[in-house]
Amino acid sequence: MVLRLACPHCGPRPVEEWTYGEVPDPPDHLTEADERDVDRGFMMGNTEGVKVERWFHAGGCRRWQTITRDTTLD
């Protein structure tokens, strides 16, 4: 079955209704402004495991939601 994300307003809804929102996660050791900008713009943690994410429920309540997901399972 396709991935379902639990919306606090609408309940579990298929991922097709949602838009993924990348949360920039530049590491703390990057202190130089340009380096941080490059990291914010392009680089990704690409977490393999449990991750807190932002998703926009475009096909439902049209609210941004914070959702915790295990990327190795879903």
């Binding site: 991935l3 990327t71 879903d74």
Partner: peptide, 15 residues
């Protein structure tokens, strides 16, 4: 591709 970033090898009927 599937829209969600993921390491899952699950196949779906939706696809």
């Amino acid at each position: 591709i599937d829209s969600q970033p993921s390491y899952s090898y699950r196949s779906s009927y939706e696809f």
